[in-house]
Design a protein around this nucleic acid. Structure first.
Length: 306
DNA sequence: AACTCGTTCAACCGCCAGTTA
DNA sequence: GTAACTGGCGGTTGAACGAGT
């Protein structure tokens, strides 16, 4: 699995990486326990930054970039990995609508989360749903789906969730303890030190029956004040956005702004209803845009100005 | 049991902007 | 001014895993 690969390339940067490594073999691939230990110990003493120097002085046959990535995404003390809370999901959706694929910008508003994790979340969860809806993740249809469905439903779920009832044991490492993180490994032979890969899987399908609502077309700008910065981290029992789909556009008898006139106008793909219906559900869809919800949004606006 | 397939996520790559000599 | 260096970013890849058959 591990690979000692002679670095090569045509750019100046890659050449500099080569030179930094004294034209020796550069290790690539998963980090070993020993490498993590070397890096953590070095950073603990000397601090981070100057990553090429870190790699060299710590005795790691890694590029500075690799060390930086490992530290930022895995080893640093405040990194959080694992289940993404409802608030975090909400924040990601909202911030992505504002910033697009500027993952680091989004990550700034999610303490402990890395741009890499948010990017992975988006690609694996959100883009998957776009694919199921047979629309492009950047399409208006999909943006509207987020605006009118996911975000209202997330808000509803957040509101409906007592402070701790939605929280599952945080399956993330909140410290840089190698023991903590490795304890989450699945079938990883730590002793072999050939890989130290953390895996966790979300297989929650906690299909709550929530209300859904259509909403003000200006919803997103108003919601733009929301930020997880001001919210306690919670862990969603299901970070999969499908949890938010559990409703029936036409069933359940609820009012819905995504009515036939909209779906028939090309705003939503032909299979839109089917894409939602596969999740089941059938709740009342009205009342989302009631005073309480507006109040909730206003509170979020007050909490943070991004 | 063995195989295929889909999902997840750690880690890599190329590019670029900022900094330094 | 500029070439080299460094770090940050977004896109992509592929190994590991679970589920399904």
């Amino acid at each position: 699995m591990e690979a000692n690969v002679r670095a090569f390339g045509s750019t100046n940067q890659q050449q500099s990486d080569d030179e930094m490594m004294m034209i020796t073999d550069v290790r690539k691939g998963p980090w070993t326990l020993e490498e993590d230990s070397l890096l953590m110990n070095y950073v603990a003493i000397h601090g981070d930054g100057r990553w090429n120097s870190v790699a060299r002085c710590a005795g790691l046959k890694r590029t500075g970039k690799s060390c930086r990535l490992r530290w930022l995404n895995y080893l640093r003390p405040d990194v959080r990995r694992g289940n993404i809370s409802l608030q975090e999901q909400l924040t990601i959706l909202e911030l992505h609508s504002r910033f697009g694929n500027r993952w680091s910008k989004i990550a700034q508003h999610l303490p402990g989360r890395t741009d890499n994790e948010i990017k992975n979340y988006w690609r694996t969860r959100v883009q998957k749903q776009a694919k199921q809806l047979k629309c492009d993740v950047n399409s208006k249809q999909f943006r509207d789906a987020m605006r009118y469905v996911w975000i209202p439903r997330l808000l509803e779920r957040i509101r409906a969730t007592p402070d701790s009832s939605a929280a599952q044991p945080l399956s993330v490492s909140t410290t840089n303890s190698y023991t903590d993180s490795s304890s989450n490994n699945h079938n990883t032979d730590i002793a072999s030190s050939t890989s130290q890969v953390y895996h966790h899987h979300h297989h929650h399908h906690n299909h709550n029956h929530m209300t859904e609502s259509g909403s003000d077309p200006n919803f997103m700008p108003e919601l733009s004040g929301a930020s997880s910065d001001s919210l306690d981290p919670q862990v969603s029992p299901g970070s999969d956005l499908t949890d938010c789909y559990n409703y029936n556009l036409h069933g359940g008898g609820g009012a819905n702004n995504m009515d036939n006139s909209q779906t028939g106008s090309g705003l939503y793909p032909d299979n839109f209803n089917e894409s939602w219906n596969w999740l089941g559900g059938g709740d009342s869809l009205d009342n989302m845009w009631n005073d309480e919800n507006i109040w909730f949004l206003q509170q979020q606006l007050l909490c943070d100005d991004i």
